[in-house]
């Protein structure tokens, strides 16, 4: 952990306004921003712990605990609602037996809401590990889960 944090700091600390860059780099390496990283980052950037904690918790993108191996984000915004994303969301909850912001017991999937993926002409939309999916049906969702589970 310390290594990843130190590297992120070294890469970005000389840029103007580097905190978000550092946090992005840490999360890219570790999958989340460990609470133990906060004082290290604060010290290196000459910020208070409160300032760093404040930024980590302000932005929906940053996680404070490790996610599952696959991150599934289902869009909840208007265009997807117009195509009944609530039905897809309900299906996903049941299929994975978890709610939003939770991870399956086997650590395979984390389910998150997202507010617009820019795929609004092909709703409902979903992103899995950075890959975008359009016009997602419950069957498509199950196929995605099966494909990701088979790979492990």
């Amino acid at each position: 952990m310390r290594e990843a944090v130190d590297l992120a700091i070294a890469q970005h600390k000389d840029q103007p306004g580097p905190l978000l860059q550092v946090l992005h780099a840490v999360q890219a390496q570790l999958g989340y921003v460990p609470p133990a990283a906060v004082p290290v980052i604060a010290d290196a950037l000459n910020l208070s712990r409160a300032e760093v904690h404040g930024v980590v918790t302000f932005y929906h993108f940053f996680r404070q605990s490790p996610p599952g191996r696959h991150i599934v984000q289902i869009c909840q915004a208007e265009a997807c609602r117009a195509m009944h994303c609530e039905t897809l969301t309900e299906h996903a909850r049941k299929r994975l037996s978890i709610d939003f912001h939770q991870t399956t017991a086997d650590g395979a999937f984390t389910l998150e809401p997202v507010y617009c993926l820019g795929n609004c002409a092909c709703s409902p939309a979903m992103m899995v590990d950075g890959d975008l999916y359009g016009r997602v049906t419950p069957e498509d969702f199950d196929a995605m889960v099966a494909a990701k589970s088979a790979k492990q």
Partner: peptide, 24 residues
């Protein structure tokens, strides 16, 4: 520079705060 999932950062002054590395 990448944002971090905050709709409010589309508001120009909060975008500037975010670019400076602060809460938006």
């Amino acid at each position: 520079r990448l944002g971090a999932g905050a709709y409010i950062c589309g508001e120009e002054t909060s975008m500037l705060e975010s670019l400076e590395g602060r809460r938006g």
